Simulated scan of single mutants.
Amino acid sequence: MTDSRAVMLELPADIDLDALIIGLNRLHIKHKLVRDEEGIHLWLENPEDGDRVAELVRQIERVAAAEAQLDVVRAPVGVVARAYLSRLPVTITALVLCLLGTLVVRFYPDLAAWFTFQGFTRLEDNQILLEPLSETFKRNEWWRLLTPVFLHFGIFHIVFNGLWLWEFGRRVELLTGSGAYLLLLSGTAIGSNVGQYLWSGPSLFGGFSGVVYGLLGYIWVRNKRQPHPLLQLPGAIFPLMIGWLLICLFGVIDFFIAGGVANGAHVVGLFIGMLFGAISGQSRRPAN
């Protein structure tokens, strides 16, 4: 935002930022949140939005007060689930699909052949025979560009990816809205799958880690270009994730994990996420 008419509002320190951001996005109000030692400040590009924002803040505070009065009553599981689904439908759907993919790989391996990047057949000696990629797509099985990200090959695999998906994905979905977030996930998933195939050649691979690195790259670049409280990760996370990426690239993990690591998906996913972050972070900042 560079409009000299931009105005700044000071927000209560304990305001529910998730609810505020969802409300601002639904009202199509152009804004920028800044958190510093003095508190939380909301910049508005259009001063005429001030009254609507003030009413939104009052509504959020009334809801918070009502929840505080009812705090002695634990909300039913169904109510909590619906609340999460209404705020994070794409993230939760992705988590469910990853869990289903894990179960398919574990208990229905022949069914998993419908969701791998390349089709395959299982031989009598339990070996895998991959069919040429051209044959797979000659049958118009284009869903295979996406579906390998939901296949996971063990408990460590799904726990690692599921936790990071929840940590990164919910932040991005709340900030961008479910539609833009779905586009980011889809683009990163397809790109990381294609990248892994080009990196390693014909092979079986799967997992959400390429998308996880895409979300990491998105958060890092967008928060550099357009800082936002939702994108402020603990300082150790980025070095940890990049360190893990480098360890995998040098082949250290291959000695401990059967089948190796999808390094191509990690690298390509990271750069695709950074590209999305750079594009999304082009919004103008408020004037001083």
Rank of each mutant, 00 (worst) to 15 (best):
P109E: 05
A94R: 00
L163P: 01
I92W: 04
F137S: 10
F120N: 01
L165W: 01
W114S: 11
T91E: 00
E124M: 15
L123T: 12
A112T: 03
F117T: 02
L165F: 04
L130Q: 07
I155S: 05
W166M: 04
E124Y: 15
N126G: 14
R122Q: 14
F150K: 08
L95N: 00
Y84V: 13
L151C: 14
Q118W: 06
T121E: 15
I92M: 12
V149G: 05
P89L: 00
E131C: 08
L146P: 03
P89F: 00
I92E: 01
L133P: 01
N126S: 15
G169R: 00
V105M: 14
W164R: 03
V96T: 12
L151G: 07
G154R: 02
Q127L: 12
G119H: 07
T93A: 13
G119M: 08
L97K: 02
Y108C: 08
E135W: 08
I158W: 06
V159N: 02
Y108A: 11
N126F: 15
F107T: 05
E124Q: 15
I158N: 02
V96P: 09
R170A: 04
H152E: 11
H152C: 14
E135H: 09
Y108I: 06
F137T: 10
R122F: 13
R87L: 13
L151Y: 13
R170I: 05
A94E: 00
G154F: 04
G101T: 01
G119N: 07
Q127W: 11
F120M: 09
F153W: 09
R87Y: 09
I128K: 00
D125S: 13
L85V: 11
V149Q: 14
L99A: 11
L103Q: 03
F156S: 06
T116A: 12
L163N: 03
W114M: 06
R144K: 11
G169A: 03
N161M: 13
I92Q: 01
G162I: 02
V159W: 05
F107W: 06
T93Y: 04
F137Q: 07
V90N: 00
L85R: 10
T93D: 02
L129K: 09
L95H: 00
F160K: 03
F137W: 11
Y108R: 08
E167K: 02
L99D: 02
F137P: 10
S134A: 15
L151A: 14
F115N: 00
T121G: 13
L103S: 04
F115W: 05
N161K: 05
L145K: 13
R144V: 15
T91W: 01
H157F: 10
R170H: 07
E135R: 10
W143T: 14
